[in-house]
Design a protein around this nucleic acid. Structure first.
Lengths: 162, 162
DNA sequence: ATTCTTGCAAAGCCTTTGCAACTGC
DNA sequence: GCAGTTGCAAAGGCTTTGCAAGAAT
């Protein structure tokens, strides 16, 4: 986490409970779901499904793959998680308690750097207004090479020239 | 196409030929590839692989699925096409001869509205500079509901209230 | 008690790959 | 003629689904 967290009044679990209750056909909060929420909001930042399942496994939490997928979908729908597609990889990150932000993604090491930009958010808002487009969210991914990988590359280039 | 095209000096095919020639291990321009390029740059705007193959089929161009995938990858690498991930769907659009732009994507009808924003591009450039991040490209997708679908929704809502 | 959720196995997508036949250069 | 490309079939990832057993309200 690099950005300041947004203050929230409820725990992720109770926010999720609220979401479940307000569904058209009311849904249930189960043990696997609670374990997942607790696990995700205790540790992860950006993660994909395979990482998550591996980590759950290491933590001796046996939650089946389908249940993980089904629960993640609900968490996204509930506004607890955000789902991002990055270079054909699907990653999740905290939404609840975390501010809207954009990403720089290093194509070499895969690192994701977060940043906020009022300017960009305002510009998007303006464009939506002028197109009478009702915005529900956005994703900005900037691809490139991060500082460290760039250094490494330059070094290698210098070596290659010898 | 809604944005003004960028003037280009070469045809897509010759631009691709140039790309092929400058590869480390030189590659070949084949009949299926030429047909694909001609077809894509004659008609399509945004398309996914299945649409493309269906349309090729209708045009009696039989190019195998693997070849389509392999060629699209090269076209993206050559800078002729851009590849965008939108709501778990992979779509391609012209890159060569078309300016950098962002997308509003309607979650109801799937329409993609293009727009350009100097402000956003500058803001991205600035952020990259301050993070010593060497940008190679970016994707901005704004999700929401377009004007028409919004109208339809409002109308339906009014009806529901009776 | 009822209705939703789980886990398993299996199926579904989309995409990639191994390989023999083929074709640019 | 050599090296890269094609098409086929098959395999690979990731994600979803049908269904019987189990759990939440």
């Amino acid at each position: 986490m690099v950005l300041p967290a947004v203050p929230v009044s409820q725990s992720p679990e109770s926010k999720f409970r609220e979401y479940l209750a307000t569904r058209p056909k009311s849904q249930r909060l189960t043990r696997p779901q609670r374990e997942l929420i607790q696990f995700i909001f205790a540790q992860h930042d950006h993660f994909d499904v395979n990482q998550l399942i591996r980590d759950l496994d290491r933590a001796d939490l046996r939650i089946s793959r389908p249940t993980v997928y089904r629960t993640l979908a609900k968490l996204v729908d509930a506004g607890l998680l955000r789902r991002i597609e990055v270079n054909s990889r699907t990653v999740y990150e905290h939404d609840y308690g975390y501010p809207q932000h954009e990403h720089l993604v290093c194509e070499v090491c895969g690192k994701m750097i977060e940043f906020q930009s009022e300017t960009i958010q305002n510009a998007i808002r303006e464009v939506c207004t002028s197109h009478f487009f009702q915005q529900s969210g956005h994703t900005l991914v900037v691809r490139g090479v991060c500082q460290e990988c760039n250094r490494a590359r330059s070094a290698k280039r210098r070596l290659d020239m010898i």
